[in-house]
């Protein structure tokens, strides 16, 4: 059957209501539309839609599909993030890393072993992995691949992992001084936010445009 504009809009609206992620939405939209198009011409839209949705498992099924897609992405992103650890050394030639490291060298006070040992490499790692994730995320969305596309919730989580693990508990539970002066700490957070915001905005727009979800 061929769907009218209103029926098409109803399918989109239904999926929008229950699916959060663009990739899953696009895949399910294509699935539902293809299934409806393959039903006989004289089918009633409501009945055909019910049959298609029953095969998917209804709202529960949609949510299960979304969860599985999210798990896949989290797994891939964590793997990618851990792998980026191997790339830290090769990341150091990148201009942002050189700038941050150079800046840190002049800003950080001397004589604190923790800072000297971990501070500068940590910032290099954070910046390097951030840049790589940003590149991967944008490329992924542009190509429309689920694995390389970073979901909105996954990127910030992973980006902030070092900050969350190393800095926040230290600030909250220990009376030790921050390993970095506040200005550097704020800069790191700003840098993370910038990466995340740019990645999400740019990549989501690219993805939406590529899939005809926005004009």
């Amino acid at each position: 059957m061929k769907l009218t504009y209103q029926q098409d809009a109803a399918v989109r609206e239904y999926l929008n209501r229950y699916i959060k992620y663009n990739e899953v939405k696009a895949e399910m939209y294509d699935h539902v539309m293809t299934a409806l198009e393959h039903t006989p011409e004289d089918s009633v839209y409501g009945e055909a839609m019910n049959t298609v949705m029953n095969d998917i498992g209804g709202i529960k099924g949609l949510k299960a599909i979304q969860r599985s897609a999210k798990r896949t992405v989290i797994k891939a992103m964590v793997k990618q993030y851990l792998q980026s650890g191997k790339l830290v050394l090769s990341s150091f030639w990148m201009l942002p890393v050189i700038c941050i490291t150079g800046l840190a060298y002049f800003i950080l006070p001397t004589g604190q072993p923790f800072m000297e040992l971990f501070g500068i490499p940590f910032m290099g790692y954070l910046t390097g992995s951030g840049v790589r994730l940003w590149q991967k995320a944008t490329r992924g969305y542009t190509e429309g691949s689920v694995v390389t596309a970073a979901f909105d919730t996954v990127v910030p989580f992973i980006q902030f992992l070092p900050v969350t693990i190393l800095l926040i508990p230290k600030m909250m539970f220990f009376s030790f001084e921050l390993p970095f002066p506040p200005v550097v700490f704020v800069s790191i957070i700003f840098l993370c936010l910038l990466h995340v915001a740019t990645a999400i905005k740019f990549s989501s727009t690219q993805f939406d445009k590529a899939n005809g979800l926005v004009a």
Partner: peptide, 14 residues
Amino acid sequence: TEGALYPALHKLEG
């Protein structure tokens, strides 16, 4: 069923 297929596809992809 699609409710079984897509999670399996995503798992294999992962």
